[in-house]
């Protein structure tokens, strides 16, 4: 198994079944550092399972998932340990701390003092405050920092959660359907936000909305029945007959 050093994520021969149903079968996936990768696929293709496996929410049956240069095998780590390596995940439904202010949501996501005792004695210094302010500006919620997160609109919650990921200073961002339930304008701005994060972070975006995929797509991976069936640019994906058959075939006419 030779593994070029520039991969941020290496997934080899991974299998996962749920009570006989093969959600992921013999999956191989490689991702370069600094890449923005979009993963598409029909319902039940295993997209969310794919993220669950990377983040340790569920364990693989076989295979290995390696992260970064240090060869951390993610299949042996727990969720919080995987997160501390620098992998941040945005859930499909926005999950923010509804009882806390926007500011506190970001503050709690800062990577320092995450232990039981260190969190008791944590003091927010001005440097950390600056970092929070900068993130709030990036996600355009600076004016709402004292608002309780539960009072935000759906789109604002999605951005807040992306801001929470940024606060964790991750190397790899996993973003699950960021545009779900957003208006056209919000979707466009979410796309811009993700594109602005490219280069500084490696990003995996899972998405359904083909308009949105076209806006952000660099390299696209198509999942089907737990396998990668095609990888390449958006154009090559769209012109691929296999992909058209399993996925775009139905959607192509409306999306194109």
């Amino acid at each position: 198994m030779s593994k070029p050093q520039e991969f941020i994520l290496t997934i080899e021969n991974v299998n996962k079944s749920f009570e006989g149903f093969k959600a992921i079968s013999d999956l191989n996936f490689y991702m370069d550092k600094g890449e923005l990768r979009t993963i598409i696929g029909p319902n039940g293709a295993g997209k969310s399972t794919f993220l669950d496996l990377i983040t340790g929410k569920i364990k693989t049956d076989t295979g290995k998932i390696l992260f970064g240069n240090e060869d951390h095998d993610l299949t042996k780590l727990r969720e919080y340990q995987i997160n501390r390596l620098g992998i941040a995940r945005k859930f499909q439904t926005p999950s923010v701390y509804e009882d806390h202010t926007v500011f506190d949501n970001i503050m709690l996501s800062l990577p320092e003092s995450r232990g039981v005792f260190s969190s008791i004695f944590f003091r927010l210094d001005s440097e950390a405050k600056d970092r929070i302010t900068e993130i709030l500006k990036t996600i355009r919620l600076k004016d709402m920092e004292t608002v309780i997160a539960g009072a935000l609109s759906h789109g604002q919650k999605q951005w807040l959660e992306i801001g929470m990921l940024l606060a964790q200073q991750p190397k790899l961002l996993l973003v699950d359907e960021p545009a779900a339930g957003m208006s056209d304008d919000e979707t466009k701005r979410t796309g811009e936000l993700l594109l602005s994060l490219e280069e500084k972070h490696s990003i995996i975006v899972i998405e359904h909305d083909m308009e949105f995929v076209r806006q952000i797509a660099r390299k696209v991976t198509v999942l089907h029945q737990g396998k990668v069936i095609k990888e390449g640019s958006m154009d090559s994906i769209q012109s691929d007959p296999t992909v058209a058959e399993v996925y775009l075939g139905r959607k192509h006419s409306t999306a194109a």
């Binding site: 919080y80 997160n83 941040a88 701390y97 509804e98 009882d99 806390h100 709690l108 996501s109």
Partner: peptide
């Protein structure tokens, strides 16, 4: 604050690097 965050969204806390 983490206590209340666990109450409201434990998965989010877990995936923010807290055990």
């Amino acid at each position: 604050k983490i206590q209340r965050a666990i109450r409201d969204s434990e998965n989010r806390v877990r995936f923010s690097g807290y055990c």
